[in-house]
Amino acid sequence: MDNFEPVIVAFCCHYCAYTAADMAGSQRLSYPPNVKVIRVPCSGKVDAMHVVKAFEKGADGVYVAGCLEGDCHFKNGNTKAARMVAYVRRYMDEIGIEPDRLEMVTMSAGMGYRFAQVATEITEKIRRMGPSPIHAAIETGKAA
């Protein structure tokens, strides 16, 4: 896989990271197209099930982007999301997916530059890590 293009799912809170992503757009800040955003009303809405499903389906990386600490529109959804991410990371090792493929990040709605920077950094990191081991499993499954 010389030209490995990872697929990365970003669950973005409507009030901060999703707005920051739009902001990156209006500032024309470039980042890799590998990142696909799924909008949620609050990072606390993101369920372990959604994250696991993304990996199961073949995501090479997943991140949840919520508001800065103390800025959550719903008081503390972002800290709940951070706990969920920490929880899922613990189990990823057991099922053979590197926990570093999953991250929690925070930013404010105004941080277009940070959105672009995070998207770039995570894409590069995942690119270095190579394809998710799930792909091999899926291929094996198909062959069988």
Binding site: I38, P41, G44, D47, K53, A54, H73
Partner: peptide, 27 residues
């Protein structure tokens, strides 16, 4: 906010407009 939907172990709660099957469909 949907936090209840996220934590519900039986998935008995759905947040309208952001139902699980729609998020799963996107994935």
């Amino acid at each position: 906010c949907g936090v209840c939907a996220s934590v519900c172990p039986a998935k008995a709660i759905q947040l309208m407009q952001f139902e699980d099957d729609r998020i799963m469909a996107k994935l």
